[in-house]
Amino acid sequence: MRPEPLRPSRPAPLGPRAPRLRRAAWAGLCLLAAGCAAGPRTTSRINRVQARSGEVWARDLGNALGLQPWELCAELGTRDCVEEAHRVTLGGVEPAELGIDAPLPEPSVSAPMAADRVAISACGERFARDKAGPALLFGPVLERDSRRRRAEVSEALVLRVLGRPAQPAELDALEALYDDIKDKVDDPVRSWAVGACVVVTTSTEALFY
């Protein structure tokens, strides 16, 4: 016997005027709930937010940027940022020599700067490789820079790093970065590409869960 296909449940019909009544009722509810037109806004009452350890964050970063973990960042060219230089700062453990067998309960004062360093280095590496070709992420703006192509890169960044489609306001924010820096630097394409990548990869959504 074949299982019955699942169907969305429907309320019982209210008669010929029902659709209009439903629309009116829904409109009334929307008016009562401010901001309904922009979609429902939900805030957590529990706020149970955890930090990703540097190791986990860096693995996601590597996957998103198509880089191996050891290619992301090396301080002074010799010290792996995530495994060694900023391991404890980024929430890692080092039980063998330092006796740190659990992540520090509070973030280190230098953790945001350390995260920026790793992201700048990794995004810079991705940009350099894309420029040398074949491009994985920044190809559209490397071919020809334009607002539309920057939006393409922004969409790809959000999708690859955060694993979801970008929202229009997020794309606007990344485009605003271009407006902010274009007159400050000689190479706005690189600065924007790396900068936009840093914005996304060090956003709280990327660093916490």
Binding site: E75, D116, R117, I120, L174, D180, I181, V185, G195, V199
Partner: peptide
């Protein structure tokens, strides 16, 4: 080395670009 966001990196960002990146990230993107 963890006490600056970009100084001393092989492929760093100019300081004013990093400033913009942080501003956009914290005031608009997030």
């Amino acid at each position: 080395l963890s006490l600056h966001g970009t100084k001393g990196l092989e492929r760093g960002l100019p300081a004013d670009v990093l400033h913009s990146v942080r501003k956009i990230r914290e005031q608009q993107f997030e």
